[in-house]
Amino acid sequence: MPAERVSRLLEDIRLLDQERFELVYALREIILGLDSSVAEEVKYGGILFSAGKPFCGVFSYARHVSLEFGAGASFPDEFKVLEGEGKLRRHIKLLVAEDITAKHVCEYLRLALKASAAA
């Protein structure tokens, strides 16, 4: 059932905006490739990823895609790309596929996965 819900959400995004779909799909592939224990589920209108514990989520909005970290406020922000002012959460706003590299998304995903394993 979770795989079917993810597929339906991805198809909905694709029908709305091909570029956002490609961005969400690319992020999803990177996240699932981090570790064999990474699982996904549709929740809160996006795709949440966990490896025992939740560590990030991908949400498609009208003009951007957001990579969200529930514990992002505790991450070192070496590249100054994390946004948000809350006590715990931070996110990275992505507009085009090139932002994945330009905003060092892989480094932040590794931090998130490591933080969830330590918690």
Results as ranks from 00 to 15, higher is better:
Phe21Gln: 03
Pro2Val: 09
Cys56Trp: 08
Tyr61Thr: 01
Leu94Thr: 10
Ala62Ile: 02
Glu40Met: 07
Val65Leu: 08
Glu40Lys: 05
Ile100Leu: 14
Lys53Leu: 12
Val65Met: 04
Arg8Met: 13
Pro76Arg: 12
Glu11Arg: 15
Leu10Asn: 03
Gly86Trp: 01
Phe49His: 02
Arg14Glu: 02
Ile47Leu: 13
Ser36Cys: 08
Ser37Pro: 01
Lys80Glu: 15
Asp99Trp: 09
Arg8Ile: 09
Gly46Arg: 05
Glu11Pro: 04
Gly45Lys: 07
Leu48Asp: 04
Ser60Tyr: 00
Glu22Gln: 14
Arg5Met: 14
Arg8Ser: 11
Glu22Ser: 12
Gly84Leu: 06
Glu68Thr: 11
Leu34Val: 08
Glu4Phe: 06
Arg110Thr: 15
His91Tyr: 11
Phe79Leu: 09
Glu107Pro: 00
Ile31Met: 03
Val105Leu: 05
Ile31Arg: 01
Ala97His: 10
Ile13Pro: 00
Ile13Arg: 02
Thr101Met: 05
Glu4Asn: 08
Asp12Met: 09
Arg110Cys: 09
Met1Cys: 08
Tyr61Pro: 00
Gly33Ile: 03
Lys43Val: 06
Pro54Trp: 03
Ser116Asn: 03
His64Val: 06
Arg89Ala: 12
Ser36Ala: 13
Ser116Trp: 01
Ser7Thr: 12
Leu48Val: 11
Cys56His: 07
Ser36Pro: 05
Asp17Asn: 15
Leu48Phe: 08
Ala71Val: 05
Leu15Met: 14
Val81Asp: 03
Gly86Met: 01
Leu82Arg: 05
Tyr25Met: 08
Gly70Val: 02
Ala73Asp: 08
Ile100Met: 13
Leu27Cys: 10
Phe79Trp: 13
Thr101Leu: 14
Ser116Pro: 02
Ala118Met: 15
Asp17Arg: 08
Ala115His: 08
Glu85Met: 07
Phe75Gly: 02
Val6Ile: 15
Val96Ala: 05
Arg28Leu: 06
Met1Trp: 07
Glu98Leu: 09
Met1Ser: 14
Ala118Glu: 15
Gly84Arg: 07
Ala119Asp: 09
Leu109Glu: 00
Gly70Phe: 11
Leu67Pro: 03
Lys103Trp: 05
Tyr44Trp: 14
Pro54Ile: 06
Ala102Pro: 00
Ser36Gly: 11
Ala71Asp: 10
Arg8Gln: 12
